[in-house]
Design a protein around this nucleic acid. Structure first.
Length: 336
DNA sequence: AAATTTTCCAACCGCCGCCGC
DNA sequence: GGCGGCGGCGGTTGGAAAATT
């Protein structure tokens, strides 16, 4: 592959551009025999017309035997997002937490895949916080964040220093979980309303054409906050009604997210060690509605146990779905 | 089938910090 | 302390490959 300058371009008699298989072999042979280091003198000894820097890069990013190739796994992707939320563009540090991946590879993957996904979800890839417009449409997030919204620095920046949600990376982990569903062709939430039970199955036909529908959250009338999302929404009009399975799916997804947020409010994040990555998949349970539980004020949810909160949410869900006038976004605000 | 556009990534560049002199 | 060489890092980009028209 021709990359950068033409392969014949030279600088002080040193070759630049893509490496040939012959050059690769020379480098491999030399390093296997003598080890690496002393990159300045290495190319001369190895018979390569390259600068040391080029050799080091080729070895570190491509020829090293312990490099893992191929598609990034879901877990790797989540790890990258997690770590990036904590340390920003520290690609080499992030790479130390992903065995076999190079900083260059992670950087590329971030720029070509993850950044776009986050943007599509309305999450700022730099601050890892939802864009304000997203928060506006999520009542529980709203109730948690409204008093702390900080408009002075940036319209998208959220002050997460409050005691209610005291760890930004936790919120991120939820959103990451949310995001990860987008690409799961299998093992995504199913809508099982039978016998008052909402569960999760390992496969669902509902989101099979995700590439067109993008994310449930954006199908869920969290709209008009990004032009590309508006476009997707317009291309998929049927999602906007309560009878549409995709709409139901999106409601469930939203509730699952809010459910997790509630559990975090109840159990503040205690990890201080940045190298410790919370398990994003620890919550895989369904929701068991408790019909006796009455809806309560969102403001009291901070002190609710998770099962109680589940039942409240499910009562809400039942009410929302049984009513016929809930086009678009479920209106949780009415009980607050 | 061909032309055009978009996506992707290998490799480059400039900068920075460390180390030895 | 100052200087230069080196390794390492992060941002950027040229062009191949893939996707779209």
């Amino acid at each position: 592959m021709m990359t950068k300058s033409n392969s014949s371009s030279e600088n002080n008699g040193l070759k630049k551009g893509p490496w040939t298989p012959e050059e690769d072999q020379k480098l491999i042979d030399y390093i296997q025999q003598h080890g690496h280091g002393k990159w300045r003198i290495l190319p001369k000894n190895a018979g390569l017309k390259r600068c040391g820097k080029s050799c080091r890069l080729r070895w570190a990013n491509y020829l090293r035997p312990d490099i893992k190739r191929g598609k990034f796994s879901l877990e790797e992707e989540e790890t990258i997002i997690q770590l990036h939320s904590v340390m920003g563009n520290k690609w080499s540090t992030i790479a130390t937490n992903l065995p076999g991946r190079t900083d260059n590879e992670i950087k590329n993957y971030w720029n070509t895949h993850i950044k776009k996904k986050l943007l599509n979800l309305g999450i700022d890839p730099i601050t890892h916080t939802p864009h304000y417009e997203v928060l506006q449409h999520s009542s529980i997030l709203n109730s948690l964040y409204s008093p702390q919204l900080n408009y002075s620095s940036s319209p998208f920046r959220i002050d997460c220093s409050s005691s209610v949600v005291n760890n930004q990376s936790q919120l991120l982990s939820l959103l990451t979980t949310f995001l990860s569903y987008q690409n799961r062709n299998q093992d995504i939430m199913n809508h099982n309303f039978h016998q008052n039970q909402i569960g999760i199955s390992t496969s669902s036909p509902l989101l099979q054409n995700q590439s067109q529908c993008s994310h449930p959250m954006q199908l869920n009338s969290i709209q008009n906050f990004r032009s590309n999302q508006v476009q997707v929404q317009e291309n998929h009009q049927p999602c906007a009604t309560s009878n549409d399975p995709l709409h139901v799916e999106s409601q469930l997804m939203k509730i699952k997210l809010e459910n997790q947020i509630s559990s975090i409010v109840a159990t503040p994040f205690s990890h201080q060690d940045n190298t410790s990555i919370p398990n994003l998949w620890q919550y895989e349970g369904g929701y068991i509605p408790d019909q006796q539980q009455q809806p309560q004020s969102i403001s009291t949810m901070q002190s609710l146990s998770l099962p109680k909160f589940n039942s409240i949410v499910n009562n809400l869900l039942e009410n929302q779905i049984s009513s016929n006038n809930n086009e678009g976004m479920p209106n949780f605000n009415r009980i607050s």
